[in-house]
Simulated assay, not measured.
Amino acid sequence: MSDMLHLIEPLIPALRRYARALLRERAAADDLVQDCLERAIGRWHLRRADGNVQGWLFAILHNLAINRLRQSQSRGRHIAIEDAGEAVLSQPPAQEDGLHHGDVLRALDLLPEDQRSVLLLVSVEDLSYAEAAAVLGVPVGTVMSRLARGRERLRGILEDGTDIAARRGAHLRRVK
């Protein structure tokens, strides 16, 4: 036991420096060093008797750090509750966003199919005008025109709940 302490204790400052350089956070680095030492002591019997203790400890520390970084990427960053502000602990209400989302979907349903298709392809699916024109089999100018009319009509529906063309009393005429 004293042999183990004699070999490990002088390496603790170097382990701390390395852990802080990896994690960039003092508390997390200290926890990492503690976990490393706990693992090394618990598995002391598994190390090679003629092996390099320093290399073994740094390998343990490095592997633990990589595992923590991977976990933090999937879980998000850890913040101590006393360090967290009110904005971190609370969320803005989402009810209005849900209502607005529903309004947009209902307004899209009110658009003519040709305008809705162009609006979805260009604004939602992020296709270029040329790509949307190819998908729909129409000229690029037609895509641009339908998109402009669709956006205007959608804006009118969302602003006051009525179709902008009906509000203006405008009707489309067929020109021969």
Score class of each variant (00 low, 15 high):
residue 18 Y to C: 09
residue 8 I to Y: 00
residue 85 G to A: 07
residue 126 D to G: 07
residue 58 F to N: 03
residue 148 A to F: 13
residue 165 A to F: 03
residue 17 R to N: 05
residue 173 R to T: 12
residue 67 N to F: 10
residue 63 N to T: 14
residue 23 L to C: 06
residue 23 L to A: 03
residue 17 R to L: 05
residue 81 I to Y: 04
residue 56 W to V: 10
residue 84 A to S: 07
residue 144 M to H: 05
residue 46 L to T: 10
residue 80 A to W: 02
residue 24 R to P: 02
residue 30 D to N: 15
residue 2 S to R: 01
residue 1 M to W: 01
residue 55 G to H: 04
residue 22 L to M: 14
residue 26 R to Q: 13
residue 106 R to G: 01
residue 38 E to P: 00
residue 133 A to C: 11
residue 156 G to Q: 09
residue 60 I to G: 01
residue 135 V to E: 01
residue 72 S to M: 13
residue 61 L to D: 01
residue 114 D to L: 08
residue 30 D to R: 11
residue 91 Q to W: 13
residue 12 I to L: 02
residue 54 Q to C: 13
residue 165 A to M: 11
residue 140 V to H: 02
residue 62 H to T: 15
residue 128 S to F: 12
residue 126 D to P: 03
residue 149 R to I: 08
residue 172 L to M: 02
residue 78 H to V: 10
residue 9 E to Q: 09
residue 156 G to I: 03
residue 175 V to P: 00
residue 91 Q to G: 07
residue 154 L to H: 04
residue 125 E to A: 11
residue 34 Q to Y: 14
residue 84 A to C: 04
residue 31 D to N: 13
residue 142 T to Y: 00
residue 94 A to R: 13
residue 72 S to H: 10
residue 119 L to M: 15
residue 147 L to N: 05
residue 108 L to H: 00
residue 16 R to A: 03
residue 28 A to T: 05
residue 25 E to G: 06
residue 33 V to N: 01
residue 2 S to T: 11
residue 52 N to Q: 09
residue 125 E to M: 11
residue 87 A to R: 12
residue 2 S to N: 01
residue 82 E to C: 09
residue 63 N to S: 13
residue 110 L to R: 15
residue 58 F to Q: 14
residue 64 L to Q: 06
residue 106 R to Q: 08
residue 72 S to T: 10
residue 4 M to R: 09
residue 43 R to F: 04
residue 82 E to Q: 13
residue 22 L to A: 15
residue 148 A to T: 14
residue 14 A to H: 11
residue 167 R to G: 00
residue 104 V to E: 09
residue 2 S to V: 05
residue 150 G to A: 08
residue 3 D to E: 12
residue 159 E to R: 15
residue 84 A to D: 05
residue 61 L to C: 04
residue 117 S to A: 15
residue 6 H to G: 11
residue 114 D to S: 04
residue 67 N to L: 10
residue 24 R to F: 14
residue 138 V to K: 06
residue 108 L to R: 03
residue 133 A to H: 05
